[in-house]
Amino acid sequence: MSVESRIGASLAALRGSAGMTQQALAARAGTPVATVVGVEQGSIEPPASLVARLAAAVAAQLREEGE
């Protein structure tokens, strides 16, 4: 499994755990939905800055759910 595929699978699982849609994640991370889809499918190689924004968006959602 490629690095891109592992990142995408992890992102999709975390997003699902947070109860977020791809659209909600994209909006929260400030990126197009197509980018989220591409990352989750492993079809694009995301720069570290994008991975960090997506992870932060999911983490923020999980924190809000825990409050």
Rank of each mutant, 00 (worst) to 15 (best):
S2Y: 04
A12H: 03
A12C: 04
L25G: 07
G42F: 03
S5A: 15
A57R: 03
R6H: 11
L54C: 08
A27M: 06
P46R: 10
A29V: 03
L11V: 15
V58D: 01
L54K: 04
A13G: 00
S49G: 09
I7W: 02
R28N: 11
A9P: 01
A48Q: 13
A60W: 01
S5T: 09
V51S: 12
G42Y: 03
S5W: 00
Q41W: 00
Q22K: 13
R53A: 15
T21G: 06
E64K: 09
S43T: 15
I44G: 08
E65T: 05
A27I: 01
G38Q: 09
S5Y: 04
A9N: 05
G66R: 15
G19W: 04
V36P: 08
Q41Y: 02
E40C: 05
A24D: 12
L25M: 12
S43Y: 03
P32L: 09
E4Y: 06
A34V: 10
E64N: 02
S17V: 00
V58S: 01
L50P: 12
E40H: 05
R53H: 10
E4N: 15
A57N: 09
A34D: 11
G66H: 11
A29C: 08
A9C: 02
S43N: 12
E67R: 14
G42I: 07
T31R: 13
Q23A: 14
R6M: 14
I44M: 11
A24N: 03
L50Q: 12
L25K: 03
T35R: 11
V3T: 13
E64P: 01
E4M: 06
S5I: 08
V3K: 11
I7G: 05
P47L: 07
A9H: 02
A52G: 00
R63S: 07
R6E: 15
E67A: 11
L50C: 11
A55Q: 13
I7E: 04
A18E: 06
E4L: 01
T35Y: 07
A12F: 00
P47M: 10
P46G: 11
V39C: 08
A56S: 14
T21M: 06
I7M: 06
L62C: 02
A27Q: 14
A24M: 12
M1E: 12
A18P: 09
A26M: 04
A34W: 00
A52T: 13
L14Y: 02
T35D: 06
V39R: 04
M1R: 07
A59G: 09
A29Y: 05
R63E: 15
G16V: 00
L54F: 07
Q23T: 13
V33F: 15
V36E: 06
R6C: 04
A48K: 07
A48S: 14
A57Y: 03
V33R: 15
G66C: 05
Q22F: 01
T31L: 13
V33T: 11
T35S: 12
A57E: 10
V51Q: 08
E4H: 09
A60K: 10
S10T: 10
